[in-house]
């Protein structure tokens, strides 16, 4: 019974992780930018929800749109200032990675300066509650955040699958020139995809604000965690990212429960390292270079 309990908790968190990486994988797919600033954008979103909760008592789940919008605007700003020139060429280069690395440092420094590196968690009423199904107990925070994440991912998947613009996004990520030749304004698609990716980071941040404790510098750890998820699923593939997130989250929960919580994050780092080395293309195949 205990093992089932751990797996269910792992799955709930897994959906949150999946939401956290969905934006990363979208941006990589369209622009070939490995956005190391993604985790700090998530934390920015978490701060938005956290302060809305502390100052106005707004439930973090209800502030998902606010956080998404704020971070999307921040993303558009970053895109215009930093990435526009590189994104236009779709170069998959070290240089863009270092640019995102620098961006991550800038936001990290700014947030740490404003709010200090103290651990924070938004604590809505349900954060300490749980429901019982038979012997299995599920904390409401995990349950709600998992469900909201799942919902957002489904909406994203439907958008990419069926809407005209969604198909254009997928077409652009497959072949930029071909997309341009059927009349797609590729630069606009890039900008919007970047904004959507950042909005996804922001909405994930809202959920993070009450599921995890967070502080600005924590994003370094999350860089490696998120990278492990996308690399497992194959960069640029949403389905792959979701599967990667669920698998690693469950494994990490199992390690945490049956071996030692101290080693649970090691699962992500080791997985990332090994997959990059053994199969640079990721287990589910979509190319990384």
């Amino acid at each position: 019974m205990e093992i089932l309990q751990v797996i269910i908790l792992g799955l709930c968190l897994g959906f949150v992780y999946a939401l956290m990486v969905s934006g990363l994988t979208l941006i990589f797919g369209v622009m070939r930018i490995v956005n190391l600033a993604h985790p700090i954008l998530i934390i920015s979103g978490a701060f938005v929800s956290y302060w809305l909760f502390i100052l106005f008592g707004l439930d973090p789940i209800l502030s998902v749109p606010a956080a998404a919008l704020t971070v999307a605007l921040l993303g558009v700003l970053l895109y215009k200032l930093i990435f526009e020139k590189n994104a236009a060429q779709q170069t998959y280069s070290e240089m863009t990675v270092l640019l995102t690395f620098g961006t991550a440092m800038v936001i990290d420094g700014l947030l740490a300066f404003l709010f200090h590196n103290t651990q924070r968690t938004a604590s809505p009423a349900y954060a300490t509650d749980a429901i019982f199904i038979g012997d299995i107990f599920i904390p409401l925070a995990q349950l709600y955040s998992g469900m909201v994440s799942l919902g957002i991912i489904v909406v994203l998947a439907l958008f990419l699958k069926y809407s005209e613009f969604g198909i254009a996004i997928r077409a652009t990520s497959q072949n930029r020139t071909s997309a341009e030749l059927v009349g797609v304004n590729v630069k606009f698609v890039c900008l919007i995809s970047f904004a959507i990716g950042c909005a996804l980071a922001g909405s994930a941040g809202s959920l993070v604000s009450f599921v995890f404790s967070f502080f600005p510098s924590r994003h370094w750890e999350w860089i490696a965690i998120l990278m492990s998820l996308v690399v497992l699923g194959g960069m640029g593939s949403l389905t792959g990212a979701v599967i990667g997130a669920l698998v690693l989250s469950v494994v990490s929960s199992l390690v945490g429960a049956f071996y030692s919580p101290a080693w649970s994050t090691m699962v992500f780092f080791l997985a990332l390292f090994l997959i990059l080395i053994i199969r640079p293309r990721g287990l589910f195949g979509i190319r990384t270079d």
């Binding site: 198909i167 077409a171 497959q174 797609v184």
Partner: peptide, 19 residues
Amino acid sequence: RAIFPNLTVAENLRMCAYS
């Protein structure tokens, strides 16, 4: 070949008519 190999045929046709 100016097609999108990972999209379905229907999606490819929709992209053809994108403009």
